[in-house]
Design a binder for these strands. Sequence first.
RNA 1: GCCGCAAUAGCUCAGCCGGUAGAGCAUCGCAUUCGUAAUGCGGGGGUCGGGGGUUCGAGUCCCUCUUGCGGCACCA
Length: 648
Amino acid sequence: MSDIVLTFPDGATRAVPAGMTGLEVARSIAPSLAKRTVAMIVDGVLQDAADALTRNATIRFVSRTDPEALELIRHDCAHVLAEAVQDLWPGTQVTIGPVIENGFYYDFAKAEPFHPDDLPKIEKRMREIIAKNAPFTKEVWTRDKAKAHFAAAGETFKVELVDAIPAGEDLKIYRQGDWLDLCRGPHMTSTGQIGNAFKLQRFSGSYWRGNAEGPQLQRLYGTAFATDKELADHLRMLEEAEKRDHRKLGREMDLFHFQEDAPGTVFWHPNGWQMFQGLIAYMRRRQVAEGYVEVNSPQLMDRSLWETSGHWETYHANMFVTETEDERVFALKPMNCPGHVQIYKHGLKSYRDLPMKIAEFGCVHRYEPSGALHGLMRVRAFTQDDAHIFCSEEQIAEQCLDINRFMLSIYEDFGFHDVHIKLATRPEKRVGDDSLWDKAEAAMRDVLDRMASDNRVTKTSIAEGEGAFYGPKFEYHLRDAIGRTWQCGTTQVDFNLPARFGAFYVDSDGEKKTPVMIHRAMFGSLERFTGIFLENTAGHLPLWIAPVQAVVATIVSDADDYAREAAVLLRKAGLRVETDLRNEKINYKVREHSLSKTPVLLVVGKREAEERKVSVRRLGSDRNTVMTLDEAIAALRAEAVPPDLASE
RNA sequence: GCCGCAAUAGCUCAGCCGGUAGAGCAUCGCAUUCGUAAUGCGGGGGUCGGGGGUUCGAGUCCCUCUUGCGGCACCA
């Protein structure tokens, strides 16, 4: 057999007989290299170390501590998990077990549900399997053989998976000891390389192929790392993330609560409402600067209006509907758009009026599935910083880009730099001709390309079939503290609603034309944004948005009068300040205000009272700085200016 | 909505094999005037999420509803 030439990362080359496996090559270089090799990268593609090399290529051997090995460790771990589960519960069917962002999962079809006590049992069995260190071996099977094998084994889901593999593609089977699975690979060379730095985390229900109408499976989630330390670090990070859960912070900071009588609906406390209103005030200033006008549309509107808009037909399951004594049917608005079209329609519009930018802090109600509710992140009543831009077709791209610039600058003001924009295209359930969708999507694909070149956008992608029923949309996803991403802003290009309502403008040629409507929200939901912002800051809010900006706390009651006077002066300077004159030790007060995340603690004792000074202690610091009251007021006032009002 | 788990004082939680409810913090009262993350002592506080059932007897066992939690599906 002829030789092939392999090029190594250091530039060295080596001629080897074609057909030699990666492991053989490694062994020929050094036995120690072969020993630590778990996979290889050939011409940039990660593959099994046992694969034969058949052509000239660049090659790099991967050891288990290389970054590229992490997904192999997790994927191998998923296989071992599947074997362990089938060992412990014979008759359980395996389905799929992919690697995900921070670990892996495996979906099983099992008659009896898992129990929390099962996790340690499964882990124990997994460690036994890993200890056996069985080699992973790959075989390529024919479709018939695979189907016959899985059918005989009662693995009906695997049979379906075999059927779904395209005809031209190899059908690969990986064995580890006596166990085997249909798998795309690659894998490491043996189960022992997984190591012991793995953990099963939780289990839950899931749906076969993500279809809620289909069979329900049981999913086990786990994670794995190359070393114990990395695993411990990851678990510690998760614990930290839990501490900044906005539901916990909401209680600690006395911002809001939920109760059984109003599922998915927020009771805002004074502190939370102050923050909420601060966000609205900020957005209102910014929108005015961008040429928006603000309106308010009815909360409850007649059924016929929702029929015209298409909501009655396509959104009914999400709507709160009510019937009055006169037997009229009204619905609480789930969106503001139909109301805004009515405002647009009131009075004749000229092309000179476009683009017309109508904004509303509209409170919408949506009957969300019970299982979807999640603190402030997913509620049934929420306030949108909603706006609709009525414009001509020619103005679409310009308006979308304008919104994009505006949107990103807002996220930056709140410290969000990880922004992922998705273009969601036409869904199955939709209104309007496909020709209109073609037009809207084409315009938006073009805009997406231009957004992608903006260096503030971390990532762009296409989400096929995920658009709103009336038009495609851009979704702005922000990453939260726990690593989950949340959709905040959206921009939706809508050719449908204006036409359905008969909205028009008189163009320069005197003809009536239908305007395009661009729906856009930036915070998206004020509730959700509050939650995301809380988690992102761990409750350490910037001074401008903190509900209580400073507390004046006394050490002795002799300082009470001075503390009261200081608070009055601070309030006169526009700061939100409270006093704490309780007969408690200063340690106690410091602890309490630290736990409730008050940004600034102004401590006054006898000395400060006599010298008209304050001892300033910042949240998160154990140091304090003594300064005059006037200095403190000036410094806090300067710091409390919202980002949009701060002079550069 | 689906699968699993849970709900005990304002908060965090204990309560065994069914025998009639407990701690810490918070609250209230009294004492204490204190220098940067919990001062001491004392008092009050519970339809054990709702309803039904089993039982001589249910916080505990069973059914059901509600809500929450972890995912799935859905979504701002």
